[in-house]
């Protein structure tokens, strides 16, 4: 019992047939070839699968694809369409990430934060990315890069 859904994905209208039980994460990765959201836990705990849904970050591993019908989705591939964002530039300059697996999710959460609050304090930044687990960095290099962006803008 497939259902056709239409998304505005990274700026383009996209139509895809999905089963009602399919998760948005699997549809993005396996059917639409968008690989930046990652599988880390399948329970909405680690944040690696985050995307922006109508500008708000959501966990695509616990969201059904059919729930996204008619809505706008932006992933890292969409954010960088016109070149690196200042946030990405800052992450690059700070060598913020190590294995890099959590990076797409953290870019999404930090982008969401800076869109609504361009000048957050360090504690607000830590709060905003607290749902994105990173096992490598200890978070200092990630937080520093976000703080730097808020200062330069």
């Amino acid at each position: 019992m497939k259902k056709e859904i239409t998304l505005k994905l990274n700026g383009y209208e996209t139509t895809v047939a999905v089963e009602p039980h399919e998760k948005l994460l699997d549809v993005l990765r396996d059917k639409l070839g968008v690989k930046s959201p990652k599988y880390g836990c399948g329970r909405g705990e680690c944040g690696a699968c985050s995307v922006l849904l109508n500008g708000k970050s959501v966990r695509t591993c616990i969201m059904y694809a059919v729930e996204a019908d008619g809505q706008e989705i932006v992933t890292v591939e969409g954010l960088e369409k016109d070149g690196l964002t200042p946030l990405q530039e800052s992450f690059l300059a700070h060598n913020s990430f190590q294995c890099g697996f959590c990076a797409p999710g953290i870019i999404i959460s930090a982008t969401e934060l800076l869109t609504s609050n361009p000048h957050p304090g360090e504690e607000e930044i830590r709060e905003a990315i607290a749902g994105n687990l990173c096992r490598c960095t200890g978070y200092g290099s990630v937080v520093d890069a976000i703080v730097d962006v808020t200062r330069s803008e």
């Binding site: 930046s36 690196l84 990405q88 690059l92 990076a103």
Partner: peptide, 15 residues
């Protein structure tokens, strides 16, 4: 490996 990772270009096995 910085640019590959912050652009989400880096491929992991599941990608």
């Amino acid at each position: 490996d910085g640019l590959e990772k912050i652009t989400a270009t880096a491929k992991y096995a599941d990608d």
